[in-house]
Amino acid sequence: MGSEHIVSSFDNDLAELNHMVARLGGLAEQQFAAAVEALETRNTSNIDAIVEADKQLDKLEFELNERAIEVIARRSPMAKDLRRIIVALRVAGNLERIGDYAKNIAKRSRVIIEHEKSLGDNVSIARIAGLTQQMINQVLDAYATGDAELAMDVWDRDMDVDQLHTSIFREVLEQIGADSERVSAGSQLLFVAKNIERIGDYATGIAEQIYFVKHGEFPSQTRPKADDSSSSAIDQS
């Protein structure tokens, strides 16, 4: 996002906001990876640390908000500069929410690990998490470089996450249906899958913001959607 304002300190302000978003993005990525790892390795030792580390994200988002408001007040940004600052605010909000979902995954993982060691082993949590992590990684790269095409590639891939979520939802419902003792852990797992799917949505939302910075408008196509979990039910017959 190269620019050369006559007032060079304005460039520094914009660079600083970008840097803050990058730090937030790195933290959100880390938190999500740690939460997924805790579930996959059935290891609860790191969960308290994950919950605690979420505060850093909240704090950084707050600092970014304050900084962005200062820049708006002092610089009266126009056109792309204005879009960059508004988008930094929105992306920071999305990343903070991703952090919240990661924290929530960690908390639910504890219940799942403690109650039901085998549940979910054959469920594609690792796959949906991997896909979503790739999306976040790529969308953060796209943000740092202002690459709207790379961002739109992430946007397109949200459909895979949605489809996978629907299939996980059905698998878990079947497991619960077959064994009623698995209800509490299974319910938690449904939420974990949903949280991951929501993280994918946030990555997609960030992709739209990157497109908006570059083009001054949002992508015109309807966002690809393939989450049918809301119409899924246990087959009782």
């Binding site: 050369e4 056109a79 001054g216």
Partner: peptide, 17 residues
């Protein structure tokens, strides 16, 4: 002021060279 079509306009209103 939000999305000018021309690069020169953009540069001028944003205070760029």
């Amino acid at each position: 002021f939000t999305n000018p079509a021309n690069k020169q306009t953009e540069a001028y209103i944003s205070g760029k060279i």
